[in-house]
């Protein structure tokens, strides 16, 4: 564990807490893509299959439980909660995210580190996470005014994998036994690059203290 990895995990945790805070306190999920939330729940379900079979550290296990629990409770809020679900704008959240799942699964079957069920599912989760934010980014461009909490949520979600990239660079030079992880590295890089224009507009909106508006 290094500071970049810890910062990445804390940033990821913050993004989830910001989203839960928004949904739980103001009972609204306006501007949040349910499809991205569904994709993320699938990412965690596929990635943490080994949560009960492969104990690595208490920290990892606790964090996996938090990410699994929060992502599924966000789904519950957005689909079942009588007040919250009314604020979900399904007419705007139209990205056909099913078209993301199958290609990622096929790619995981073709390109993986070991052809076992758990390893293919883990690889699938890596590919899927790289594109999971797309429905949310498309929704942001459609909804004119992005509220602060939604903007912070997306920013933190994008930043966490960026910090992981620094963690991988650090580990590559600092840990002699750390081997290459091309699948994780390339997917993580593509994932972070997808946020590039969002980061640009978000940082400008914070700097100029104006509402975040992505160009149509």
């Amino acid at each position: 564990m290094n500071i970049f990895r810890l910062a990445g995990d804390m940033t990821h945790l913050m993004s989830v807490l910001v989203l839960l805070l928004k949904i739980h306190t103001i009972k609204s999920c306006a501007g949040i893509s349910l499809k991205t939330q569904e994709l993320y729940a699938l990412v965690f379900a596929a990635r943490y299959l080994d949560i009960f079979t492969h104990y690595y550290s208490l920290y990892n296990t606790v964090m996996k439980l938090i990410f699994l629990g929060s992502s599924f409770s966000i789904l519950w809020y957005m689909k079942r909660h009588k007040v919250v679900r009314r604020s979900y704008d399904k007419d705007q959240d139209t990205f056909r995210h099913h078209f993301l799942v199958l290609p990622c699964l096929v790619l995981a079957l073709l390109i993986n580190e070991k052809f076992t069920f758990k390893e293919v599912m883990w690889t699938f989760s890596i590919y899927l996470e790289a594109v999971a934010i797309l429905p949310q980014l498309v929704l942001l461009q459609r909804t004119r005014n992005v509220d602060n909490l939604t903007g912070q949520y997306v920013f933190l979600l994008g930043a966490y994998r960026g910090l992981y990239i620094i963690n991988w660079i650090y580990r590559y030079f600092a840990e002699p036994t750390y081997s290459t992880h091309w699948i994780t590295w390339i997917s993580g890089l593509l994932q972070t690059l997808l946020y590039a224009d969002f980061f640009y507009y978000y940082i400008n909106s914070v700097k100029n203290n104006v509402r975040l508006q992505l160009p149509a």
Binding site: H12, R47, S57, K64, E113, K114, E119
Partner: peptide, 10 residues
């Protein structure tokens, strides 16, 4: 195989 087992990140 060590790297497969070592999915030590989240």
């Amino acid at each position: 195989d060590s790297k497969v087992e070592k999915h030590d990140e989240l």
